[in-house]
Design a protein around this nucleic acid. Structure first.
Lengths: 176, 176
DNA sequence: TGGATATGTCAATCATGCTGACCAAACCCC
DNA sequence: GGGGTTTGGTCAGCATGATTGACATATCCA
């Protein structure tokens, strides 16, 4: 089963002189990949730890987060934000309604809609999860400084698609 | 099944005068949560699209990335980086070896070890996935500017635990 | 009235993680 | 040299969260 030498792939060709520059560029991109992988993991770890004691997962957290962020959101809008199918959402959302974390209300203008909001219980859990992430983010922000935070925001916005950028703007605008 | 009004949870109390400050703080943290969610998704979307045509997933990409990043890495070290169990890794890694994306070589000093490297085929796929992510990252970096990139790096480093920070330093140091 | 829309649900499947148990080979120390 | 430890592989079973396809219901709107 074991082979002899690995036989690594060749580096891509580059004209003399530009080689160092291209190489530095590649190193920067590779670093970005590593930072996003480990950074995102650090960001999700604290809520994950709390959730597993409640037999919930990251999917539940996302529902709590975005429903809390936009109370009265429709199921369709939530599906659009999460980017999953209604079947996938249903399996997470319906138990959360049954367990009194989320409530549904029929839409005023369109009675087909089910407007979602957090209950007191749901809001309390969301706040606990929020606090655990707040700690991590505050520490990172404090260590990096305000200018770095602004740079972080600019880069993260650039990483997402146009649709997500508009979605974030909508979430920010709706700030109560 | 539908209840009447949502009954939103109360905002946490805060003494007069500090209220605005605390509120702004919370808005900043909430924004960070949104940015990380949508940004990470934008970052992973392009490789995911390629991978699904090959019947592979994100787990395969992570193996390709970190083995490519550290050729000759041991199975144990890879497990440590990925933070998963050997059973989970095995199910992804063994098919990749069978399909000639990854090779194993017995360690020179310790023959129990299986040193992992990418084959030509594996390196080619890894580069294709890298290129798709490179596009997204380059665009975000270009739009945000060099100072923002430095800030992004500082914040992402702060988000991860000490162990991950050391791991990244090790990966950077091993730059060929 | 009838088609489109919003939501829910059943059934099957897939990807990726987990635990527990166990095995084999190699290493290392007494 | 023998015995315990380490490294890696593997089997079985399970959970989560995603998918598709098909279908049901209630409501909206032209």
């Amino acid at each position: 089963m074991l082979t002899k030498p690995p036989g690594m792939a060749a580096m891509p060709e580059a004209p003399r002189g530009t080689r160092d520059l291209l190489f530095l560029r590649e190193a920067e991109i590779r670093l970005a990949q590593d930072l996003l992988f480990f950074g995102y993991r650090g960001f999700t770890a604290p809520p994950d730890q709390i959730l597993e004691t409640l037999d919930m997962g990251r999917a539940h957290h996302r529902v709590l987060h975005f429903v809390g962020r936009r109370p009265g959101i429709t199921v369709g809008d939530l599906l659009g934000i999460l980017g999953i199918t209604k079947q996938s959402l249903g399996r997470v959302l319906q138990p959360m309604i049954a367990d009194d974390y989320v409530t549904q209300t029929a839409g005023r203008s369109d009675k087909r809609q089910r407007l979602l909001s957090l209950t007191e219980k749901g809001a309390a859990l969301e706040r606990q999860l929020y606090d655990s992430q707040r700690e991590v983010i505050m520490r990172a922000y404090r260590e990096a400084g305000p200018q770095a935070v602004e740079g972080f925001r600019r880069v993260m916005r650039g990483l997402m698609g146009e649709a997500a950028r508009e979605e974030i703007d909508r979430l920010e605008a709706r700030r109560p």
